[in-house]
Design a protein around this nucleic acid. Sequence first.
DNA 1: GATGAATGAGTCTTCATTCAT
DNA 2: CATGAATGAAGACTCATTCAT
Lengths: 199, 199, 199, 199
Amino acid sequence: MARKVGSIGAETADRVRLAALSLFARYGYAAVSMRQIGREIGLQAGAIYNHFPTKQHLLRGLMVEHMERLLTAWEAERDDNLPPREALVAFVRFHIRYHVKCGEEVFISYMELRNLEEQNFVEVEELRRRYEHSLRSILEAGTEARVFTVSDPRVATMAVIAMLTGVTNWYRTDGRLSLDEIEELYVRMISGAVGMKEN
Amino acid sequence: MARKVGSIGAETADRVRLAALSLFARYGYAAVSMRQIGREIGLQAGAIYNHFPTKQHLLRGLMVEHMERLLTAWEAERDDNLPPREALVAFVRFHIRYHVKCGEEVFISYMELRNLEEQNFVEVEELRRRYEHSLRSILEAGTEARVFTVSDPRVATMAVIAMLTGVTNWYRTDGRLSLDEIEELYVRMISGAVGMKEN
Amino acid sequence: MARKVGSIGAETADRVRLAALSLFARYGYAAVSMRQIGREIGLQAGAIYNHFPTKQHLLRGLMVEHMERLLTAWEAERDDNLPPREALVAFVRFHIRYHVKCGEEVFISYMELRNLEEQNFVEVEELRRRYEHSLRSILEAGTEARVFTVSDPRVATMAVIAMLTGVTNWYRTDGRLSLDEIEELYVRMISGAVGMKEN
Amino acid sequence: MARKVGSIGAETADRVRLAALSLFARYGYAAVSMRQIGREIGLQAGAIYNHFPTKQHLLRGLMVEHMERLLTAWEAERDDNLPPREALVAFVRFHIRYHVKCGEEVFISYMELRNLEEQNFVEVEELRRRYEHSLRSILEAGTEARVFTVSDPRVATMAVIAMLTGVTNWYRTDGRLSLDEIEELYVRMISGAVGMKEN
DNA sequence: GATGAATGAGTCTTCATTCAT
DNA sequence: CATGAATGAAGACTCATTCAT
């Protein structure tokens, strides 16, 4: 049988993406089959290939698009004129706020790196590098301005990112703490971690 | 752990474990086949079943044994009489030192949780909870004693663990920094993060 | 066979036929997909079904039409009043000249017989039988007239056809020998094979 | 379930080969599935891969081994001291006798050439070239010795081979003519085709 | 008449697992 | 305890074909 009435290509592609995202996050890329993705949205596995040439393309798309959206959102929000203290706070708040909204994307972006083929891996890593570089610049500027006491900005960058991203592992919309409270907690902890001077 | 002469079976089981560990870490549990594990050590896939009843048992074993070794090592080293400041420093140093030594175990213990069958998952999570509880106790004690300024010990525990475990993602034996220097950096950052009083 | 202006449909059908012919000859009927044929001429696979009801019809068409054109061409050229010697020479020259012009059709007409459904197979075989019967009649007439020395006209027919058709396997337009020279060589060899008396 | 009692590897491989040969000959390589081959001999498709790494290897094996057996048989029978007339007769008789015994191998060796991957194709072609070269040498020697009247030995070689191999297309063990009679007919026709002098 | 999206069956191949030897 | 051969299910992907638009 042919096309279901009213179904449009782009719409189906989006449903596939969504199903894949959710399944990859829950079971892992390698453990999820095209059949399973199709079943989730009432499609034969083969039909997915009308929208994505391979399973790998599907994964790459999810990761690259996530990273690009993240970068775009950060570019829109960052303010390079902010002094280091305020810049760090802005980054921390942005990172948490943005990441808890798309926990699944974040999760697979860390977990499925090894399932990316070389070329796609390089592409995603470059995007990540660009994002994390923002934080490093802030830490370096603050260190130079003697408002932070960071011995090794490279290590500090990774430490802060690790701490921040960890939030997505336990954050629940209906949890004990509001998003605002969580942001506040992390601003305090990270301020301390980088040895931020009180004023 | 020297093997007695003739205990060739246990030796083979160990070779399987080692190969599986390395392959699971590199490619992921779901993406690694029993044939691949066998090939790595010159064995037919079928022979693995003389030592492990299923692939899932193999994974469970790696994860449970890792967590148990970790707990045992920590039990041996912890000193509950230490005041909070010193206890925290001891935990930080222990965690880093222990984890960088077994990056692969740590990696799969985080990555492959979702590939554990329910019962095994529960078991591993309980072990992890016990380990992380040590840190939480230290943070709570230090907060109560007003030597730390931690607003939310539960969140702080997860934040500190996330930051610390992140080290295994980039640590290289022959890297720029010695293990000692790295421990020092993290002691400083985490001391700051928990608002440790200077004295 | 000029197409009337506007008869764009028939034109598309012809492009399909041409593409299918070429692809079937190169890769074999079973190994060529409707998508591949469509791609070759910038068409979606589905569009082919506006012109041919099934892939099998496409194959049948190519083979039947080839055989019919061959028969028609031979009917136009044959001269039943020719004496056996001249008739054989005429057949040899015609066969070679005609077959090297449509190597692909000849090729698939031999190679894809087994991919024809029963009914289509019978139809094509009947056409082939009719064509080859011309040669057999010539050989029988010549034998009766004692200008050929053929022990078994049935076997001789198949032997001559096999020898002649083999030309299409190696003939190249720009090869070492001209078509005329090739015809001459085969006339000599086949004359010998049928024991043609010198005069 | 594991191995069926008594089945041995080499034996199964042979049964696979035989089934594949027969099916490839009847339906063509591309049209035959591994399932079909397995079904023919009561095996799951997957089990075939215990004996042949790919379907292509199976095909290559059938063709290469056929050509090698053919060459070996001819090497055992040829006698380079025979004068051209006798040598040609020997070749004709050998070719027919050998080829009618393995019609399926011969058939796929011609039909499935295009389904061989480049490297395998080259290998098979080289074997074929070596075999056909024997005939060409005979024709050239006979021409030089003026016992044959061949204008172009290269073309004559292909013509003779084509005529001879055609036999496999219609030969039936229980046919009208005995193998001996058929050999006799072809010796006469081919002697004529190469213009063999009567004595 | 063409497209693009869909189906359902099929492709080759790999998988975890079993078991006679 | 290991091998090698097997099973049956499943993997990603392609196929001929259909049909609403």
